Amino acid sequence: MPIYRIAIGTPGEASHPDALKAAAAEFFSTLIFVFAGEGSGMALNKLTNNGPQTASGLIAAAISHAYALFVAVSIGANISGGHVNPAVTFGALIGGNITLLRSISYWIAQLLGSTVACLLLKLATGGLETSAFTLSSGVSVGNALVLEAVMTFGLVYTVYATAVDPKKGNIGVVAPLAIGFIVGANILVGGAFDGASMNPAVSFGPAVVSGVWTHQWVYWAGPMLGAAIAALVYDNIFMGDSTHERLPVTDH
């Protein structure tokens, strides 16, 4: 079971130059992703005078997030792995592909990157509010929890198949594109119901800046649950001990 491969890491790991560079890469990648994704939603609201959501608006959101995530994962891949998402980091931790201490540094960097992106958006747009994630009318907390878990399962499963699996071969080249595509597709599915976060950092930044925390826990619990299940499923069924490269637990 992957759970037995979880490595805590060593105290010196957090201050190691490589770990600091990786955290910085996660900060900037997440900032770029959230600025473009959240910013596109704010621009659409301005163009429609905060009118009701439309099909064309949902498609625009899906495209902007897919493009932005493709870029964000690409620019961080060679430094930090291009997680850009606390749920992806959690999935990597469950599978033993990153240590707990490094995961914590990634989570901090991702949350800060999202928050700074939203603050910059508010500053750049003359004080317009960033839109916090909320449940649509008729969507219960249970509905949203399942939706977020399933969508994030698809995302993290894709990450494992195209970026983590040692057998990925040449398909690793298209990993950022595949990851961006699955997020864009999932937004077309869940965007009208709960905003289709799949990423606690994406939900956290707008909540901090707007001060709206309603149902925020759903956007953490759902993605983390989906990520854990995806890691367990893919690692146990398709990777296993024979192909898994255990992380070193000492400084390097």
Rank of each mutant, 00 (worst) to 15 (best):
G240N: 10
Y106P: 03
T125C: 07
I75R: 08
G41Q: 13
T250K: 09
I3D: 07
G138E: 15
V173I: 15
A231G: 13
A185Y: 08
V139W: 12
P11L: 11
V173K: 07
K168S: 06
T48L: 00
M198T: 09
M42C: 07
V189K: 04
N50V: 00
F204S: 03
W220T: 00
R102K: 12
T99N: 02
L112A: 13
V156Y: 04
N143K: 13
D18V: 10
N45I: 04
S105F: 02
C118H: 05
G180H: 00
G172Y: 13
G76C: 10
A231Y: 02
I6T: 04
N186E: 03
V146S: 11
V146M: 15
S136F: 13
A231Q: 10
M198Y: 05
A66M: 15
T250R: 12
F133R: 00
V249M: 13
N78Y: 12
L135P: 02
S137K: 15
V249N: 15
L111H: 04
A227I: 15
S105N: 14
I6M: 06
L135Y: 11
A201Q: 07
S197N: 15
G211I: 10
G172N: 04
L111V: 11
A68H: 07
L188S: 06
G191P: 00
S80V: 14
N78W: 08
G113M: 01
T125S: 14
I75V: 15
E13L: 14
Y219E: 13
L112F: 12
G76A: 04
G95T: 02
P86V: 05
L93M: 10
N78R: 14
Q216N: 06
G9E: 01
A87F: 00
F238Y: 10
N236D: 07
T99Y: 12
S29I: 11
L247H: 08
V146E: 01
M239R: 13
N50A: 10
D18W: 12
A207C: 03
T48Q: 00
G57C: 11
S197T: 06
A178D: 01
Q216I: 11
L100E: 05
V189S: 10
S74I: 00
I59K: 01
T250A: 12
L155R: 06
L247T: 15
V146I: 14
R5T: 06
T30K: 12
S29N: 11
A24V: 12
